[in-house]
Amino acid sequence: MAWLIALPAHKGWATYIAIFTHPRYWLSLLNTVGLSLLVTFCTLVLGGAVGIFLARHAFVGRAVLLSVLTLPLSFPGVIIGFFMILLGGRQGLIADLSEALGAGRWTLAYGFLGLFLAYLYFSLPRAIATYTAAAEKMDCALEEAAKTLGASRYAILRDVWIPELAPTTLACAAIVFATSMGAFGTAFTLATKFEVLPITIYSEFTNYANFALAASLSIALGLVTWSVMYLARRYSHSATVLL
């Protein structure tokens, strides 16, 4: 590890800040952060909704559904990339459907949308598991009181659910963001046109044998995710998240 941090120094201190000075790397970092933020936001909204639903409704097969929904936690990222190819690739389901509708063959797997859906796919199980557990422990008395006092649905969402689940949300957001930032397998399988930082690092390393730069970019990536996790941990002590 120390070697990794020290390595860019051999090529001069400028290598450390290459990510700020080269538009290509800077863009790649912005792409990655933007994508991860968007994925985190959508994951929290969808995962929160599904989690609350699963925690509140007892129906036949609920336990099975929950375990199927959290199954992808154990999939390697490459499998999820492959899933997107099956869904939105050249021979994919979406292409078949859109052709049947007379709209031509859509391939969305290799662009931003494919990457976004794939990241959503591996983030959702974690959020669903975390929110289901948190929502089951949620105190119903507050909600009942609010309802008795005539609070609207929106008011309950804003004043009861969101504050009650806030620590969970913060911790979950940090983990989802961190995994999205570092996800390599998925983007690698999709050979995506939307360049994200892990792919940039990989191609610097293998295609150009530019070890120092690859190390410097890794440090930048690590710093961004680590500081987000650090902040999240400082502000939420109680919440537990499924890693």
């Binding site: 690092i201 190390a215 990536l221």
Partner: peptide, 10 residues
Amino acid sequence: VAVPGLATGL
């Protein structure tokens, strides 16, 4: 968790 596996591999 924070440092991508890629960097550790590197």
